[in-house]
Write a protein that binds this DNA or RNA. Structure first.
Lengths: 160, 160
DNA sequence: CATGAATGTATAGATATCTAACCAATTATT
DNA sequence: AATAATTGGTTAGATATCTATACATTCATG
């Protein structure tokens, strides 16, 4: 594959690639979010699991991994932390003893009303000054990027 | 501040937040990129430092951190790995002995021609099927998100 | 029903990343 | 010149994340 000088120098421009921009956006997001959730004892990683569990409880760890979009070992580690923090309890499934079902504690359920507004704030701040159409376009294009890269990859958003 | 039920349920939708989408986009990007660079012995983390050093050599670690957009301790760890991998050498600055200057080895310089096309590929794949205008818009909007979240944060892209 | 394949979880070991605290060298101030 | 503040780098300790591997249970098949 041949790339001319112009193409090369374009991509040398550090701050102009989608890869760079998504990294910085993700980073800024995580920091901004954690700044709001940490005072409530919830890390950014735990937040991602909570969000899924607030929608549906009693999932297996595998299913949870799939929904959060993380690998199983990551889930195991995160859940250990969440169990220690009193956010979840894990229960062995009686029908299929391989499975572990994850349930939220009342404490974690109660945090929902507190934490959701935090994320709303961060999301609003992130898109401040954009029109609704721009926000929709950003989401659409980001989702496309995810799809394109997931196709060739295997791991990713590919659940639909 | 008050959020109505509609707003709340909207943000409950896991896959519809900018935060989620940037995370998945970043993740997909890193995986896709590393799949191409790892065969050449370069991790995704090292790649980010290489890209900056290819543009300018002999930077202090602090300046390097600033340009890569990472904290100093992250840089220290990454550079230790890169030194071990024979990608850089570090030299104490004679005028100001606090400073350590980072130089690329010939090996690392040689990798540029090999690795840049890898990233071009990933970036092209990520934006496949988008018009140039859409790509530009995506970059513009992502950059806006970074700016908005950096303002309130402190750490981030805030170099301008 | 015994054994092999598939499934669900966990462990091992690696990289990446952060914050907080610390040390060393330089610069600024009295 | 002595001391305080600043600057550059590192260490310590934590979370997050991955791949590869191992272990345990269930299912499927001869």
């Amino acid at each position: 594959m041949a790339y001319n000088e112009k193409t090369l120098s374009y991509y040398e421009e550090t701050r102009n690639s989608i890869g760079y921009l998504t990294r910085i956006a993700f980073r800024s997001f995580s920091h901004a979010l954690e700044k709001l959730t940490l005072p409530h004892g919830v890390t950014a990683g735990q937040w991602r699991f909570l969000r899924v569990l607030w929608i549906e409880d009693g999932l297996t760890q595998r299913e949870l991994s799939r929904r959060v979009v993380m690998r199983e070992p990551t889930t195991v580690t995160a859940l250990q932390g969440m169990e220690k923090a009193g956010l979840i309890r894990r229960e062995q499934c009686s029908e299929d003893r391989r499975r572990t079902l994850v349930y939220l504690t009342p404490k974690a359920k109660g945090l929902k009303a507190t934490l959701i507004p935090c994320v709303i704030d961060v999301n609003l701040r992130a898109t401040q000054g954009m029109t609704d159409a721009e926000i929709e376009q950003l989401k659409t294009l980001l989702a496309k990027v995810c799809d394109r890269l997931a196709e060739s990859d295997g791991g990713g958003t590919g659940e639909a």
